[in-house]
Amino acid sequence: MQALKYARAASVDEAVKMLREGGPTARVLAGGTDVIVQARERRRQIELFVDIKHIDEVMSMRMEPRGLTIGAGVPLYKIYGDAQIARHYAALAESTRVIGGTAIQGRATIGGNLANASPAADSIPALFVLGAVATVAGPNGRREVPATQFCTGPGVNVLLTGEFIVSIFFPALPAHTGTAWERFIPRNEMDIAVTNAAAMLTMNGETVTEARIALGAVAPRTLYVEAAAAALAGKPLTDASIAAAAVAARDAATPIDDMRGSIKQRKHLSGVLVERTIRRAAERARA
């Protein structure tokens, strides 16, 4: 563990102040499941941890008609454990339920998953298809950043010095909408995704009125696969349209070969997972 200091922020403003004064080597400490390990292994230069878990707004969760707001410090188990979320935002519940194991989920957050900006981050494809928007506080006040624009590359995001995510907002989804998320890992838990995917479908009868498809671990950042969505939108959902979406996903994937998966495997899995999530999302949309 590199030498560092720990500070606890009691309010959003105090957190912003601490982060600004700490400069680029100050880091938000949310669940700590990424950042503590990174500091221990000296993978990032960190001199200050700013613990945001004693800020009420950051720890709260609210379901309103316009949508769902999840504080950036809310641990995953509270997210997937919420019956409303499981019902209305299935992809979010599915992805948060398998990040790490039970003990990791007691601490880890979606804010941390997003800010950490791993290409394989499991919640990010769900955030993409759910249209999630991060509320960011900083020295110049607040701004909203759509999840799709948040990460800029592996381990890097749009946040400026002094900024942090206060909460993440998930707009209410239209009627007859279903979402689903899935990943492939070699074991049944405790693995980093070889590939992950999420889908959102809004249906009118058997016709798809809107579709969103996201794909992870196959590019430097999570992909929002417009072409796959286009293969579905405005058409009846058929085996052929699903297959076309899967092909579009495979084509969009530009993965690398590493110890966790090969290019061939990841491209192939892109198609498989997109197909599977579309089918499950459709089932939910019809229900």
């Binding site: 194991g101 070699p186 074991r187 049944n188 838990e189 405790m190 693995d191 980093i192 590493d258 110890m259 966790r260």
Partner: peptide, 16 residues
Amino acid sequence: LRNASFLDYRMPVAND
């Protein structure tokens, strides 16, 4: 060695 961790060495876990 690229996978010197329990995460990436992948020993069976309880639900495997």
